[in-house]
Amino acid sequence: MTNQAGLVIENLSKTFHTKHKSIQALSGINLTVGKGEFVNIIGPSGCGKSTLLRCIAAFEKPTEGRLLLNGQESTKPGIDRMMVFQNFEQLFPWLTVRKNVMFALNASTRVANRIEQREWADHYLNLVGLKGFEDFYPHQLSGGMKQRVAIARALSVQPEILLMDEPFGSLDAITRSALQRELFRIWQETKVTIIFVTHNIDESIILGDRIVVLKANPGRIHSIVENHLPRPRSKDDPQFNQMWEKIHSLLNAETGIPPVEERLTGRVRQDRRLTAGAYLSLAEEVHRANPPE
């Protein structure tokens, strides 16, 4: 079993200790992700979905359990598992778009030669549709373009697994769905394994082969939904709606998260910087849950 290709997560638990109490973020996670698979992880906020991703990247050390990548235990961050964050600050503002990608190739010693680094960088920027923006600085780009650069940079070192932590969470609805389509195309072209964390049900259905639904306190796997809807997936497809209802009820019934309206107002209250994109996607959820007569 240990020489299985892909990622094997065995009995992973993570407990955070603060001064006064310890919080169990994850408990007994067992998950296998095959080579080239596209897996979504969805769950209510605080269910530890980001922590799980950060454990896979080895930014966090699991309290128990272990992670095997192609049979090898991985305990340190490495370019075989590249993370793409939600945060726009992940790009280095002092480097141009091309130099950001070249930085990755240089720092990881993936490509030593400057001319080759440049060629590789341009290749991956072209892949994410940023041809012509190579000499721009990050602050000159829109949010969607910044995330494209981050994806190009992560892919340039040719990782085994692309870890994506709500990468489109701060984008407006239109940019978000454009990037979802692009990501699907990139996945098909590069055959990279993708583990994609989201709290958006639509996103999880549009993108993945499998949807891992987590529940909170402590975070554990509630169920894994196989998603064989034909691609390209459309929200108008009745099967899409069935899938949506299924995941929605899994999230609601078993995790005890409050109804969507409450979540909407709660999030607006809690996060004053809630972006228009996040607001729209939440509003969309409300609309789905309560269709007008």
Partner: peptide
């Protein structure tokens, strides 16, 4: 930003190289 440090770590940078780069 912590994210930038993690990007560096993800690429295998640590210690003096992480500080310098």
């Amino acid at each position: 930003p912590a994210t930038q440090i993690e990007v560096g770590q993800n690429l295998g940078l640590k210690g003096v190289r992480l500080i310098g780069k």
